[in-house]
Write a protein that binds this DNA or RNA. Structure first.
Lengths: 150, 150
DNA sequence: TGTAATTAAATCGTGCGCGATATAATGTCT
DNA sequence: AGACATTATATCGCGCACGATTTAATTACA
């Protein structure tokens, strides 16, 4: 019982941040084999999802939706371009901005990706209602944290 | 309404995995300034928490608790060693194994770290009950995912 | 006992993810 | 118009995180 003074806070399992952190990795491992078949990494897949939802976005628009910096997105988008899934082109209206557009291959990949979400939901073992509740609780917390970070 | 056929699945905000992914980053950003003061990164902090809870662990023991591979932990632990917080020593009973022990500085850091968890809880905007429920829901999901990944 | 299988870390290459900084284009203000 | 600030990407260095492989020690077992 040398750690009596720790019991109040020093337990990894009691850290909400750790549950989120380890759940992220668990998701990653589940996605890996499914996304390997599509030739995508997990963050690349999320970028593709935002583009399937709305094509022809700027780098910063994608960054806002995904909470990522250009220092993360620029190299990632160049890899997607190298793999023939997107095109990067300076906006003629504002040459500072880069527009990201899906190629035909990028659009086509969407059909293959349709099978992914149901597989994932099944792997979580959650019913749809619980998944929705967990999702909105996490979104609320994330937004509160983001606001606290200013 | 060109995307009618997508509405069923192609919305990033509806992806539970994305909420978890973005919440991880939000936590990271909140922790950053607090951990900078301790000279730790976020994963390093989590490793220190496991060591404060139980000293003298093997690399693989830490790996099991954190769901990390030796390829991640070995360099991380070497950085902690370089910063004078832990010692790495081959186990004389089994020379394959490396035992990780806290230095005096590593033990001392625990007192400074005591202020961190309350700051984080406050930043989440959650009351303790909600935080506990969210925590156990996430743990359950993570464990189900981990089992599905075999 | 000696060979094969297993185990524990370490190493390597790739891809995030970020803060700090750089570069170039646009906007502002006088 | 000219100087200055702002904005959008890009670049760089560092630290994860992982899969695949390697090395060394231990165990199994023929």
């Amino acid at each position: 019982m040398e750690n009596t003074s720790n019991q109040d806070f020093l337990q990894l399992e009691k850290f909400l941040c750790f549950s989120v952190y380890s759940a992220t990795h668990a998701f990653n491992r589940i996605y890996k084999p499914l996304l390997d078949a599509l030739g995508l990494t997990y963050p690349q897949y999320l970028v593709m999802v935002t583009l399937w939802q709305e094509d022809d976005q700027s780098v910063s628009s994608i960054g806002e939706k995904m909470y990522l910096e250009s220092s993360t997105l620029t190299p990632l988008l160049k890899r997607l371009e190298a793999n023939g899934l997107v095109m990067r082109k300076r906006d003629p209206k504002d040459e500072r901005s880069v527009r990201i557009n899906l190629t035909d291959a990028g659009k086509a990949l969407r059909e293959k990706a349709r099978e992914v979400p149901p597989c994932i939901l099944e792997a979580t073992g959650l019913d749809i209602e619980t998944a929705k509740r967990l999702n909105s609780d996490l979104q609320a917390m994330r937004d509160t944290l983001a606001a606290a970070a200013k």
